[in-house]
Design a binder for these strands. Sequence first.
RNA 1: GGGCCGGUAGCUCAGUGGUAGAGCAUCGGACUUUUAAUCCGCUGGUCGUGGGUUCGAUCCCCACCCGGCUCACCA
Length: 492
Amino acid sequence: MELNDLQQTRYGKLQALQAAGIDPYPARVPQRTHTLTALREQFDALAEAGTSVTIMGRLRQRRVMGKSAFAHLNDDHGAFQVFLSKADVGDEPFKHFVDLTDLGDIIAVTGTLFTTKMGEPSVHVTSWTMLSKAITPPPDKREGQFSDQEARQRQRYVDLAANPEVRETFRIRARLITAMRQYLDQRGFLEVETPVLQAIYGGAAARPFTTHHNQLHQDLYMRIATELYLKRLIVGGFDGVYEIGKNFRNEGVDRTHNPEFTMLEVYQAYGDYESIMELTEGMIRFAAEQIFNSTSIEYQGQQIELGGSWQRITMRDAIFNKTGVDIRECREFDTLWEAIREAGLKIERKPTWAKQVDELFSEFVEPELIQPTFITEYPQPLSPLAKRKADDPQFVERFELFMLGAEIANAFSELNDPFDQEQRFLEQGRDYAAGDDEAMQMDEDFLEALRVGMPPTGGLGIGIDRLCLLFTNQTTIREVIFFPHLRKQGEE
RNA sequence: GGGCCGGUAGCUCAGUGGUAGAGCAUCGGACUUUUAAUCCGCUGGUCGUGGGUUCGAUCCCCACCCGGCUCACCA
């Protein structure tokens, strides 16, 4: 192990501890009587009773003044000041504390509670114990000083230790997931797990990662969605299932994309995209109430209102309102392109009607959808797994939820007609052959499942990481994923 | 992939074509109620990597690596 100067100094102290018969990484440690938060809450009673307490945490600040010393310990939720005096803790232990501890060490102290002249609740230490010697120094004793984006992500453990608000961000993430789970469990949905390694990938438009099973001599794909397996479970007779798990998509990395990301998918037998809209609304609102006691969340200086019914607007109306182009009147590429030109819109020319519609939407509508909005009724070719609208088969019963100018959720009335589904797969196959490397693969077994019979079903996918941005007031997905994807650093 | 910006001490940053700077941390000293403790003193650097220009490059030029923003791609 190569140690730098600062680490060498600490290693010297570690050896000095050992020479004094002190294990720098002891297996047996004192019993912790209070967390630092509990200590603060119960301070008055404990101080009055003169109760001896034992607390533990990371040494974050240290102020030695000759024959006495103050220090701050940090634990998961709080900080607390401790006071040592040579007279009370003993010559030898005091000297060890002064000479052999460093910022970042994890220690335990035992003592009674008192309040300093300056009014700071503190522990008057009678004994202390080294729990774990830190060899690498913490970045800076002042909070928030470890701010280099790259370093924070490569060494998240330092980031978390140095920046309490980062720990808070991830606590909110955990509570969000817990709340959604709770909401679904209460409504009878069964949490399930389906394969990550798949011989045929599907359920989304994306390129997969490939891998290989050595023993079976078989190439496999990392899943890009859980959709097709979850629907098989609905065929099997479950009324409602959901899965929270990682998906893997072989695509670029930016503020809203990470190659592995967490998705919630929910399927509700005998539901449809309208019942799913209510579920989506209810679930996200429930999470906000659980976490913030409010249905209004402040995000980057604006209030996002999750209360009440969210706006619902068809894709046709949304595009028409912004551009004057009516995609229901212009049902073929040529007429649509003509209308776009007449309206004088600056927009890229796409190869098909459906993709042109998508482009219109992405350019002129999506960025302006800040408050939660359901966009409904999508062009069929963009939605190979969704059921057609009975009165207009060029469109499907689908919605996407937008907020903060980004897509948060995608849902539809699931296509359960095996013949139509087969045609859609064939169409996807033609797209793939024509160069669309994100088109879906034919999945014969899934078709067989539909032939066995799937009830009318509503399905939903929510990008947990993106939803997290709202709940944690963050602007990049890297801030809500502990270890986001980064390139390898040089050698080492 | 294109454009722009950045990489200097453990951390946060300044800086110059002529032997590299600050705050905090570290190290030595003083100090028994401090709290970003204070005071005195001292350390600490392949200036992202590799080339080039130059008497001399951390600085200028080229390539590359890593990161950020942005456009493109992408749900």
